[in-house]
């Protein structure tokens, strides 16, 4: 099977049962993407596929051949942290750091969704053209990423500060 991960084309001969998460962690050594529940209930495994955030634990790797996959390792460029990663450090948007890559990838996916007009359950009028991004909107949209250390305030601060300036990955099959 052939995969495009963080701009690199990678081959792997894997069991069909392998999840995208285990492919990244066990076969490609990309352990930045984390396993917290393996059942889509915590968001630690969030990666971007063609710019859209997904739970890689529920994804069979075989379904993602040839798609453009971005993991936390792909956010840094030439060793420099992404502005959102910098903001997470500045605002202490984590403690143990385990859910952090998922939170960061999720936030980037969320920014993409806001740009393409995806509403949320707390959007007052789902038919409205523009979505007002406020505290509730960001919290609802990030609720698929659990942080047991409780760094939620710092995470939201980091995202809020960076949101306007997040360089967005190209959205290939944006909804």
């Amino acid at each position: 099977m052939q995969f495009v991960i963080n701009g690199r084309s990678l081959d792997a001969d894997v069991d069909l049962r392998t999840s995208l998460l285990d492919l990244l962690r066990d076969h490609f050594g990309l352990s930045g993407t984390k396993k917290g529940c393996n059942q889509g209930a915590c968001g630690a495994c969030t990666v971007l596929v063609d710019g859209n955030r997904i739970n890689s634990c529920l994804a069979l790797a075989v379904q993602y051949q040839g798609r453009k996959i971005t993991t936390v390792e792909g956010l840094t460029s030439n060793g420099a942290l992404h502005p959102l990663q910098e903001a997470f450090v500045a605002h202490d948007g984590f403690q143990c750091g385990y859910c952090t890559p998922g939170q960061i990838c999720s936030a980037i996916g969320m920014a993409n969704e806001l740009r393409t007009g995806v509403p949320s359950y707390v959007t007052a009028d789902v038919a409205a053209e523009a979505i007002t991004v406020d505290f509730d909107e960001i919290r609802e949209r990030m609720s698929g990423n659990i942080c047991r250390c409780g760094a939620y305030n710092g995470i939201i601060e980091a995202i809020s500060e960076t949101l306007g300036t997040i360089p967005l990955p190209e959205a290939k099959d944006a909804p």
Binding site: G32, E73, E86, V89, G97
Partner: peptide, 9 residues
């Protein structure tokens, strides 16, 4: 250890 953690390293 922040830079390591946010980079997944």
């Amino acid at each position: 250890d922040g830079p390591l953690k946010v980079a997944g390293k």
